[in-house]
């Protein structure tokens, strides 16, 4: 094995997946994520962006092909098994436990490793100090942006190798969106590989190391975020204008 292939963390190998038998959303999707990368997945509505994350996390059945994490086949594993192997998932909506307090939400994040809870809480406290200040507040009383923080913090409690973010900026105000992107970059700098699916293609490409453009259920092409921002086809289809 060459050094380059050893660095690969996750491979999607010709993955076919769909919600209903016979109707596949992912049609032979292949991509590769290296350790420590921040990957952005963009594409038009219905391209299969969210489905890709859900298939990777075992929420949508994979009918053909496979996902490989660190050399192990993880296709169609149960969610709790994937969490154990170091995958954290933040859904787009309904991503907190509303009747639980912030602290209890975080405790659920570390459910499989209660002995590491205290230690992880300190780490998370550095990233999200506001959550610790308000730890006894019920998550159901928080705003959308605050919930997004709780959701990310919960997913980070297990110290995952890779964090999957499903449209983290959706439904947030522009200021909160910026905050989310900056925070995602921060988390990535702490050594967590991140795969994010985004509608806000420009902001996403600005912060990510590498982007994948998904189209009709396959990974159409990949390049660094900066390259994709300048790519005429990407500009025309997903960015609208050259912009700022």
């Amino acid at each position: 094995m060459t050094a380059a292939t050893q660095d690969v963390l996750i491979t999607a190998d010709d993955v076919w997946a769909g919600y209903i038998p016979g109707v596949s959303i992912l049609n032979g999707c292949s991509l590769e994520v290296k350790k420590g990368e921040l990957i952005g997945i963009i594409g038009p509505n219905g391209a299969g962006k969210s489905t890709f994350l859900k298939a990777l996390f075992g929420l949508v059945p994979v009918t053909e092909g496979k996902f490989v994490l660190d050399g192990d086949d993880i296709t169609n594993l149960r969610a709790d098994q994937l969490v154990k192997r170091g995958i954290g998932f933040v859904p787009q909506t309904n991503n907190v436990f509303p009747s639980l307090t912030i602290l209890e939400n975080l405790e659920m994040g570390a459910y499989q490793r209660p002995q590491a809870f205290k230690e992880r809480l300190d780490v998370i406290g550095d990233l999200f100090p506001v959550l610790i200040e308000r730890k006894n507040q019920r998550a159901g009383s928080l705003s959308g942006g605050e919930r997004q923080m709780v959701a990310m913090a919960r997913a980070l409690m297990m110290d995952p190798k890779v964090l999957l973010l499903d449209e983290p900026s959706a439904g947030l105000s522009p200021a909160r969106q910026d905050e989310t992107f900056v925070r995602t970059r921060d988390i990535n700098k702490h050594g967590v590989t991140v795969i994010m699916v985004e509608q806000n293609a420009r902001r996403c490409l600005q912060i990510c190391d590498r982007g994948y453009v998904l189209d009709q259920g396959t990974a159409a092409y990949t390049a660094t975020g900066q390259e994709l921002l300048k790519d005429p086809k990407v500009i025309e289809l997903y960015l609208g204008t050259l912009g700022a």
């Binding site: 969610a79 969490v83 991503n95 639980l100 209890e104 459910y111 499989q112």
Partner: peptide
Amino acid sequence: GRATRAISDNPALAAASGIR
């Protein structure tokens, strides 16, 4: 008990948190 309450809040998220 807290996991039980988490499941009544949101079973899908409970599973995604690693709760069986």
